[in-house]
Computed example of a mutant assay.
Amino acid sequence: MKRIRTILRALDPKAAATMSRRERTEAFRIRRSVVAWILALCVIVSCTSCSVHAVLVNAVLNGHAKTAQIGNSGTRSEKNGSIRESRKEIAAIREENPGIVGNERRKGLSGGNGGTAGRRRHQSASRAVGRADGRSESEILAKAQQTAQNSGYGMVQYHYCVVTNGEVGSVEDFSNAVFRILNSEHGWARAGAIFEPSTDGNCDFDIVLAQASTLPTFSSVCSEQYSCRVGNNVIINDDRWNSGTDVWMSGGGDLARYRTMMINHEVGHRLGHIDNEMTCAGAGQAAPLMQEQSIFLDGCAINEYPLDSELWIG
C-alpha cells in the first residue's frame, strides 16, 4: 500500500511543491516508468488489433470458399459472388505458380512440354460426327454456340489439335468423342466456351491421347495411373480412356460417362480450374467436376459436367 501511495503522489502535479529534492527525483523516475508502460501497452494493443483483423479476413475468405461449395443450391447471385471470390483466389495461386499442372493424382510445377517428340498430329476438317441422335458436327457446334451465347458469360472460342503419343491405335473415334464432349450443351458451353478442331495447325491447346507409360515424360508430376495437364497439353491416359477407374465404376458410372468426365475435367484445367477447388458438398449430391472423381467421391454422386458454381473460365 505504501508503494501505491508513493506512485499516486508522484503522479499528482500538485504534490510536487511539497516534495523534497530526493522525492522529486523519485517521482520523475516513476513518471518515466509509467510512460514507458503506457507506450508498451499501446504497441501490444496495436499488434492484437492486427491479429484480430487477420483472423477476421481469413474467416471471411473461408466463408466464401464454403459458400462456393454449395453446388446447385442457393440463389444465382449468391453463387456468382462466391464464384468470383474463389476465382480471385485461384488466379492468385496461378500467378504465383505459372507452371501449375492439373493432375488427377497430384499437382506441382510443370517440367516443360516434353514427351511430344515423334507424336502424330491429327487436324480435322469438317466431318460428320456419329451420334445416337444422328446430329452432324455442324449441328452439334451450332447448339453449343447457342448455349454459350445464352449463358450470360460471353462466348469464347478455342481451337484445339488432337495429338497422339506412344502406341494408342486409331485416333478417329477419340477425336469424334472429344468434339462431342467439349461441345455438349451440358458442358463448358454453359460457361461460354466452345471448341473447334484446328484446320491449320494453330491450336490454343493440344488434346493428347497418350500411352500410359509416356505420361511422366511430360512432367515429373504426371503419373502413369491417371491423366494430366501440362501447359497447353491436355494429356489423356489411354489406359484410363479404355477402362476408367474402380472408384468411378463402383460409384455407378460407366465408361462413356467416365470419358466425358475425364475430357471435361482435364480441359477444365486448361480453362483455369485446379483440382479439388470444390469438393463434395454432401452425401448424395452431384460431385463437382473438378473434384478428383477418379480417386474419391466422398459419398457424392458421380458427375461428368461442371456444376453451376463451376461455370467460369480463366
Results as ranks from 00 to 15, higher is better:
A189K: 07
N232P: 00
E23Y: 11
R240H: 04
I83K: 06
T245V: 05
G282V: 02
T147N: 06
V156Y: 05
Q146G: 10
T75I: 07
S49Y: 11
V129D: 01
R257M: 11
T245A: 05
R22K: 15
I70F: 10
T147Q: 09
G111H: 03
R24M: 15
A148Q: 04
L109R: 15
G114N: 01
V234K: 01
T18N: 14
V178S: 01
A17W: 15
D239E: 12
V171T: 08
R127W: 08
R87T: 08
S20T: 15
L41S: 09
T75E: 04
N202Q: 15
N232C: 00
S170I: 09
I70L: 13
Q149M: 12
L271H: 01
S250K: 15
I313T: 07
G166Q: 00
N242R: 13
G253A: 04
D239C: 10
E23P: 09
A148C: 09
Y160N: 00
V60I: 11
V55N: 07
R22C: 14
A10F: 09
N264E: 03
V34M: 06
T199L: 03
C203Q: 01
S151I: 13
G201K: 01
Q123H: 10
R76H: 12
T199F: 02
T67C: 06
G314H: 02
T67S: 07
H273T: 00
L182V: 09
G244K: 05
T279A: 03
S124H: 12
R76Q: 14
A212C: 08
N276E: 08
T25G: 13
D275F: 03
W248Y: 05
D308L: 08
A286E: 07
